[in-house]
Amino acid sequence: MIGLLLDVATTAAILFVVAAGLLITFGVLKIINFAHGGFLTVGGYAALVVTQAGGSPWLAAPAAFVAGVVLGAAVERVIVRPLYSRPLDAILATWGLGIVIVQLITLAFGRGTNFVPSPVSGAVAAFGTDYSAWRLIMLVVAVLLAAALAALLQGTRLGLEARAVIMNEELAQGLGIDSTRVRFVTFALGAGLAAFAGALITPLLSVDPLMGVPWLLNAFMLVLVSGTSLASLGLASLLLGGAQVVISTYGNPVLGALSIVVLAAVLLRIRPAGFARG
């Protein structure tokens, strides 16, 4: 039972970390970034490069974050900004970008699976059972990340401006907020968080050009049911991720793997606002 609870909590934590970048981009820019999977992959490869160059595995995630921010900034400037007035086209363009990122990584690193050493390995005794040390660390990371993002949104000028843009962009512009800058910073930050997450999941996964794909759809659905709220995302990750773990464990893992997308789809039909208040 403790094992199951830990499975649920850590699965939710991983989902939260993976989807957080997508959520803030969606909140401010009102577009779903289909290149999110590509950014995750970039993060995984950043971790690979750092560790292969002899860097500590602990440095992998911060380095990936920086790489993601730089890439995201460039992408926002070149691809997303010109499509400001055409949100659906912006989504399609990020889709194309996802394809391009995967192909470029394939050309640069080959198609094989790669391995990034884990900062910690094996299981530790926790709550009366042996449990994967890295998954427990992910739990801590998720909580810290949520706290940091909340502090950023609530406690800084940028956060205030971002919240204003999320609520009502026209009004925010009317109040003299430079929404172009807010969008730019947010997209870069979202990409950075995606890459950060990509590096963080490498101890559990292989690093290969398609590593982002399985996460993409789940992250979309979580964001769609969460609207623009971090708290909702946390709740959605916990409930839907929990459903995935429970269905996989007591039912069929194939159904379990589909449970997030299916439950989210039905939920959105019944309650379009999802877990967000409204």
Binding site: G3, D7, T11, L210, V213, S248, V254, G256
Partner: peptide
């Protein structure tokens, strides 16, 4: 006897069952 989708990357539930 447990199967995961081909592109699945999260083996949590299978590992839980193995442990049990």
């Amino acid at each position: 006897e447990e199967y995961l989708p081909m592109d699945a990357s999260d083996w949590t539930s299978v590992i839980s069952k193995i442990r049990a």
